[in-house]
């Protein structure tokens, strides 16, 4: 775990110009995570340190099994590390307090998942309302859906929407509460290129227009061009980090 530090070193330094002026929004130190699937023990994270700054767009890059989803889940308060600490502003996300984590997710986090995870029995509008109903100062579901260009399909059920549309509903649902941080787990993983770009464009707009700190995890290296900062994970460790001098816009990407 201590061995991981030198690797992080340059990364943290690389972020100084963005971050030295203010404290990082997220601060993760020495995170490990071991879990069991069935009868197999998996070491998903083997000691990760990480800082994330407000308004930043970062891409967590890595092959499947590199631990990036686990890291995202821990940042989003969905999961706790086996050891190590994570702080979001002045919240300690590793105190083990379930209710506090729930409140944290409710107030600060928006999630977008690879398989959209829409509730099949609810329409697009209702899926968004699911979140706006419990948020403190949300936008209306209609505005959120307009933001992702789905004003015309608000009363459709997930089964009546294409994959790209479903993912945009999921984004609308994630941003409708005006979260402080938007966490996207392989948002284009189940989509074709054209639709994927459309979805990435929406995420980019949310980051720019609402100033939401955004983390996208992907195994698709092409997407990293959109980020302020790219962190590479492999085998449960941070293996690299670099800052894009110029961010590419989504519609210039190809893969």
């Amino acid at each position: 775990m201590t061995r991981a530090e030198p690797e992080i070193g340059p990364g943290t330094k690389g972020a100084t110009d963005a971050g030295e002026a203010r404290a990082p929004e997220f601060q993760a130190r020495g995170i490990t995570r071991v879990y069991r699937i069935g009868e197999v023990e998996v070491h998903a994270l083997r000691g990760v340190d990480l800082d994330l700054f407000e308004g930043e767009f970062i891409v967590l890059l890595g092959p499947s099994g590199s631990g990036k989803s686990t890291l995202l889940n821990i940042l989003g308060g969905l999961d706790g590390p086996t050891s190590g600490t994570v702080r979001f502003r002045n919240h300690n996300l590793t105190s083990g307090d379930e209710a506090a984590l729930t409140l944290y997710r409710r107030e600060h986090v928006g999630f977008v998942f690879q398989f959209y995870n829409l509730i099949p029995s609810l329409t697009a509008r209702e899926n968004v309302a699911l979140v706006t109903e419990i948020a403190a100062s949300p936008m209306s579901p209609e505005d959120a859906l307009a933001l992702v260009g789905l004003s015309g399909r608000m009363d459709h059920f997930p089964s009546q929407l294409s994959g790209g549309e479903q993912q945009r509903v999921a984004i609308a649902r994630a941003v409708a509460k005006r979260p402080d941080v938007l966490l996207c787990d392989e948002p284009t993983g189940a989509l074709d290129v054209k639709t994927g770009i459309l979805v990435l464009d929406v995420i980019d707009r949310v980051n720019r227009e609402l100033g939401t700190t955004t983390a996208v995890i992907t195994h698709n290296a092409a997407i990293s061009a959109m980020a302020d900062r790219v962190i590479t994970l492999s085998d449960g460790r941070v293996s690299g980090m670099h800052r894009n001098e110029r961010k590419a816009s989504a519609n210039t990407l190809t893969w």
Partner: peptide, 16 residues
């Protein structure tokens, strides 16, 4: 399972 997980991810409490 996944729907419940999604609800939880969005901050729905155990009580809800």
């Amino acid at each position: 399972r996944e729907q419940i997980a999604t609800l939880k991810a969005f901050g729905y409490t155990d009580g809800e």
